[in-house]
Amino acid sequence: MRMEFVLEIARVVLYVVGILAFVGFNASYLVLLERKGSARFQLRHGPTEVGPFGLIQPVADAVKLLCKQILIPKNVDVILFFMAPILVLLPAILCMVTIPFGATIAARNFNLGLLMVFAFAAFNVFGILIGGWASHNKYANLAAARVVAQNIAYEIPTLLIVVAVVMVTGTFNLQEIVAQQAGGFWRWNILRLDLNPLQPVAFLMYFICLLAETNRAPFDMVEAESELVAGAYTEYSGMTFGVFFMAEYTNIVLGCCVATVLFLGGWQCPFGLVPGPHWFLLKMYALCFTVIWVRWSFPRVQFYNLLNLSWKILIPVSLANIILTALMLKVF
């Protein structure tokens, strides 16, 4: 009994450290990947000075952000101002708890894991809203108003798509969802055309929603630097901005993790051989790279077109997707 208790404590500590390390590593090295990737898209070299191929650059960035003064402008609501970045980062880290990186590698295997992920992911919008509101800056206020409209608009199709997937899998447990997709890439949910012929479309829509939910270009209405200076982050400096920045990348990683689990078979091998966490990471980073790729290829959409896309296209199609899934389940 005592031994089990100690082991349990050790396990918790290990996973907390592991998840924090994973999040920190990803946040810093995805920034490097983004800088290197965007440089390649743009005929540049990107960071090259710090370390070989600029590999130590994230450390330099972190040191710089940590050393910078944190400016507190006049008239800001100080408590909310500092709460906002934490509120954005913390739920994203919490969601990581339930992500199954491998058959046995998951901090906690919840039965309602998927529900938990989306419950916490919805917190993201509060953080940015509070930050934009507390900043006492007109650009930040405009961005705060935008983020609410945008996230509500995209939360709905995301959940509708996920509901359709859950109808197919019949479980909220992420481990089980992955386990069901074993045996080869034709068993992955994205290609389960026998269950729902719209599955690839659903994946595409999920990916669009992912971009919008994480406020990434071409849907970066919250930051929109050529319109709102830096949007909700205008008044943030030093590490307060750094935390927002980390949260953005953590959310991308999280979104890509969930997409991998739901559609791409998680840690399953595409050919049914040697499943393991390496497959998970490979798929997840391929999605992350696509997110970066999209950002450097498209200009920003107008806000009303963003909402039109959600309310007029994504929501009706995802509703149709649910009905089709239900029919397929009942009929076949």
Binding site: S38, F41, Q42, L43, R44, A217, P218, D220, A224, E225, S226, W296, S297, F298, P299, R300
Partner: peptide, 16 residues
């Protein structure tokens, strides 16, 4: 102009 619209990449090609 593309930067105004939020697209960063064409600028570098134009500058090239």
């Amino acid at each position: 102009y593309l930067i105004d619209l939020g697209g960063f990449t064409p600028m570098l090609y134009a500058f090239d």
